[in-house]
């Protein structure tokens, strides 16, 4: 199966790419070519805000499945994260449609965000649903484990280990028949 992963070097992407070793995977990155390659995928450099470039790289990948793991939380900039969920998602989803991908898998959240954050999440999920592609939106609980903000889950809150989250993304991408 041909799989295009946007957000390939994020916390979930780093766990996911090695799981996809039996597939032809293209990992989109803004600059971390060596990291994507080390994870076993073919790197492609693109900024998700460069709409035409995103269209070109997704089309070139000819993916069966597009996996959306895009976030912008490295600087804990929630405004940037909301923007990537709105604008980045639109570019990626439109590119997936243009490239005739069959399935779209989207990382979302199960927990409450700020009003702006929640609106961006709703927009992201709406874009997936209305894409016309088979879509699987995964509303993940807060992540913990390597590379996340949490060394261990907080008492009384809903969490999921990043590796388990990646496993769910893996199954959503390849574990069930693509119709």
């Amino acid at each position: 199966m041909r799989i295009f992963v946007a957000g390939a070097t994020g916390v979930i992407g780093r766990e996911l790419l090695p799981m996809l070793a039996d597939h032809a995977v293209v990992g989109m990155t803004r600059s971390r070519v060596d990291a994507v390659r080390a994870l076993g995928a073919e790197p492609v450099v693109a900024d998700v805000y460069d709409r035409e470039l995103v269209f070109a790289v997704v089309a070139a990948a000819r993916p069966d499945v597009v996996v959306h793991l895009l976030t912008d939380l490295a600087e804990r900039d929630f405004e940037a994260n909301a923007r990537i969920r709105r604008v980045g998602t639109r570019n990626l989803v439109d590119a997936a449609v243009r490239a005739r991908a069959r399935r779209l898998v989207v990382e979302s959240i199960s927990f409450a965000a700020s009003a702006e954050g929640a609106a961006a999440v709703a927009e992201m999920e709406r874009l997936a649903k209305e894409s016309g592609l088979e879509s699987i939106v995964l509303r993940l609980a807060r992540l913990w484990g390597p590379g996340t903000w949490n060394e261990r889950p907080e008492e009384g809150a809903e969490f999921i280990h990043v590796r388990e989250a990646a496993r769910v993304v893996y199954e959503a991408a390849v574990g069930t028949e693509v119709t």
Binding site: S110, E134, R139, F159, I160, R163, V168
Partner: peptide
């Protein structure tokens, strides 16, 4: 077209089974 919206939560502190 099929659209799935799934809620994913770890069910144990050690990140064992997930709930979908």
């Amino acid at each position: 077209m099929r659209h799935l919206l799934l809620r994913i939560v770890g069910t144990a502190g050690a990140g064992a089974l997930v709930s979908i």
